[in-house]
Simulated scan of single mutants.
Amino acid sequence: MSVVELDKVSRWFGNVVAVNDVTMRLDTGVTGLLGPNGAGKSTLINMMAGFLAPSAGTVTLDGRPLYRDPEIYREVGLVPEREEMYDAVSGWNFVLANAKLHQLPDPESAARQAIATVEMADAQDRDIRTYSKGMKQRIKMATAIVHEPTVLLLDEPFNGMDPRQRMHLMELLHELGDQGRTILFSSHILEEVEQIAARIEVMVSGRHAASGDFREIRRLMTQRPHQYTIRSSDDRALASVMIAEPCTSGVELSVDPDGGSAVQVQATDYSAFVHALPRLASRHGIRLLEVHPADESLESVFSYLVSR
């Protein structure tokens, strides 16, 4: 069992703080690193891979610092987000070169097995420049697993994959996790994480926002206050009846410069609100013309977690 630990880790680039005082522990199984673009996920993964030194704090694998330790690199596999690759090299030679760099006893056999695992055998002799984005992701995955690492770090691994490729990779990650490997993969898509990882780490603006069981954190996301913009046949009447509902904590009637209006509602109980709104509108003869959430971006969801 391999354990990756981060203790009060920060990383800054000049005046920009990319990661700020993060403490977390990765054990065996699959962990999802969730956060909007720019949250610091890639910086965190590069430090876990030993390619980037923390500006403060420590990053260790089984108690040993990861930065610039070639022996530890043999225990780590990395799929970077960046697409730059050796385009004039075939997929086979790319994976084989990585097997040889790890000084495997039978690099050809290891390369063949890794390529077969990611279902790239049919395209292994083609130059990487001819690959689609999804194929490049899969050949990068082959290089990451060719030496059978105990720790696997994947930065947005599903980018560019079609539905069948995504399903295959999800099944592979489940299988590797069940084998006792420590796997971390990053994503800004909630549904990807939900299908694979029982445990997640949430990053927002370089900060560690939440950690733990996916279902518990998802419940917090669902129960957070929701902002809605509603347009109806009588916004003033709708605002007056909604303000008395216990499921709302704030109701405001806004008027557009062109004379149009809308009702801005903050709902503290999502389930009660979605049932109360059509019931009240029907009772008072109000037609609902438009209802849409005003703060359903991942950024707003994660920012709520940070504020708790």
Rank of each mutant, 00 (worst) to 15 (best):
residue 216 E to N: 11
residue 233 S to P: 13
residue 250 G to E: 13
residue 140 K to I: 02
residue 183 I to K: 08
residue 167 M to P: 00
residue 205 S to L: 05
residue 197 A to H: 12
residue 190 L to I: 15
residue 138 R to M: 04
residue 242 M to T: 01
residue 204 V to E: 11
residue 122 D to F: 01
residue 156 E to Q: 09
residue 132 S to W: 02
residue 163 P to S: 00
residue 240 S to N: 08
residue 240 S to P: 08
residue 241 V to G: 10
residue 138 R to Q: 06
residue 243 I to T: 13
residue 255 V to E: 07
residue 164 R to G: 01
residue 177 G to Q: 03
residue 222 T to P: 00
residue 206 G to Q: 09
residue 133 K to R: 14
residue 139 I to L: 06
residue 235 D to S: 08
residue 211 S to I: 01
residue 245 E to F: 02
residue 183 I to M: 02
residue 159 N to W: 02
residue 214 F to A: 07
residue 164 R to I: 09
residue 135 M to W: 08
residue 124 Q to K: 15
residue 172 L to E: 04
residue 218 R to K: 15
residue 245 E to D: 14
residue 143 T to V: 04
residue 216 E to F: 02
residue 251 V to S: 10
residue 180 G to F: 01
residue 213 D to C: 09
residue 205 S to N: 14
residue 227 Q to L: 14
residue 182 T to K: 12
residue 184 L to T: 05
residue 162 D to W: 00
residue 233 S to V: 13
residue 248 T to V: 15
residue 160 G to F: 04
residue 126 R to A: 14
residue 227 Q to C: 03
residue 178 D to P: 00
residue 195 Q to W: 00
residue 216 E to V: 14
residue 211 S to K: 09
residue 167 M to Q: 10
residue 177 G to L: 01
residue 142 A to W: 11
residue 142 A to M: 06
residue 233 S to I: 12
residue 244 A to C: 06
residue 202 V to P: 14
residue 121 A to P: 14
residue 240 S to T: 07
residue 179 Q to L: 11
residue 228 Y to N: 00
residue 242 M to K: 06
residue 188 H to S: 11
residue 177 G to V: 07
residue 222 T to K: 11
residue 248 T to E: 06
residue 177 G to F: 03
